[in-house]
């Protein structure tokens, strides 16, 4: 796969499961690893979230001869938030142990505790045998400012998402006029269809629609079926019909359902795809929808 200038960016799903890893026969198609997505363009390596999927991401990099001490690279990891399923893979990310690699970790500045202490506490010897200080790469942890970040032709901007316990961040990567949005861990139902509309919900809805507008790829939380959502209101995740409606309203071109519920088997996700995709596939304009699966790389 080429990733040079003017070729498409390559988006890879390394983990698509929400909450907890779910290995086993019933989840092998869509995968059991928790969230991690990489975006590679013209030697820029962007990773979003460090769920258990980041382990395979690191192994593949090193396996291809990159991020090794002979061939060090610059890696940029953006965290949506620090719930466990989004950081638990970090201690297993091999390039972080390789001297010479530069590894910058970005997160929200609006946390009660510094991002650095949250991440290093996860590697306290009571929880993990290796301390964060032993990661041999050149690691820096940055709380983001409002300004968009630039890496060559690639730009990243972000917004806070409030309807998730403790909050989370959504990211938008713009490259070659194309837009990839990662917006996991948010309950859009509470923003777009609240019990009572307020100025605040109206503002949040408008902000969301503008951020994901005409995205070439939207990677979004669509954890619950319509049925399940009835008993999971307020848990911080979106229901499938709401995500479909909002994404279509925003003229999204490809929609990847993400953060799959741990109880959802391959069979169920296949059935959901069969149920919902034809309507949007044949709509005018079409929106291509799919349930994100581990081991899939898309040209965007």
């Amino acid at each position: 796969m080429t990733t040079g200038k003017n070729s498409p960016a390559q988006v890879t799903f390394w983990g698509t499961r929400g909450s907890i890893p779910t290995p086993g026969r019933t989840t092998e198609k869509y995968g059991g690893n928790t969230p991690c997505v990489s975006i590679v363009y013209d030697n820029n390596y962007i990773i979003i979230d460090a769920g258990s999927g980041i382990r395979n991401c690191g192994l593949e990099l090193v396996g291809s001869g990159l991020g090794t001490s002979e061939n060090p690279i610059d890696l940029h990891l953006f965290l949506s938030h620090t719930h466990w399923d989004h950081i638990q893979g970090l201690p297993f990310f091999v390039p972080a142990y390789v001297p010479g690699n530069s590894f910058v970790i970005y997160g929200s500045p609006n946390k009660e505790r510094f991002l650095e202490s949250i991440l290093s506490d996860q590697m306290d010897t009571q929880y993990f045998p290796v301390e964060m200080t032993s990661l041999a790469a050149n690691i820096s942890i940055r709380e983001m400012s409002d300004e968009a970040l630039r890496f060559g032709d690639l730009a990243i901007d972000w917004q806070e998402q409030v309807y998730h316990p403790g909050g989370s961040v959504r990211y938008r990567i713009t490259v070659n006029g194309r837009r990839i949005v990662y917006a996991s861990d948010v309950e859009l139902d509470q923003i777009f269809f609240p019990d009572e509309k307020t100025e605040e919900t109206e503002r949040l809805a408008a902000e969301y629609l503008a951020f994901v507008d005409k995205a070439d790829l939207l990677i979004a939380d669509g954890q619950y079926t319509e049925e399940e959502y009835k008993t999971k209101k307020g848990w911080g995740h979106t229901s499938i019909p709401v995500l479909l409606e909002i994404a279509y309203r925003a003229k999204v071109k490809q929609l990847a359902f993400f953060h799959h519920d741990p109880q959802h088997t391959d069979k169920l996700l296949n059935e959901l795809w069969t149920k919902y995709s034809p309507k949007y596939h044949t709509a005018d304009p079409p929106m291509h929808i799919f349930w994100a699966r581990e081991g899939l790389t898309m040209p965007i």
Binding site: P8, Q10, E28, H281, E294, G295, L296
Partner: peptide, 13 residues
């Protein structure tokens, strides 16, 4: 394309 999605690479199931 795999299951209607354009891919650069995909694990097959």
């Amino acid at each position: 394309y795999v299951n209607s999605i354009r891919v650069s690479r995909c694990v097959l199931r």
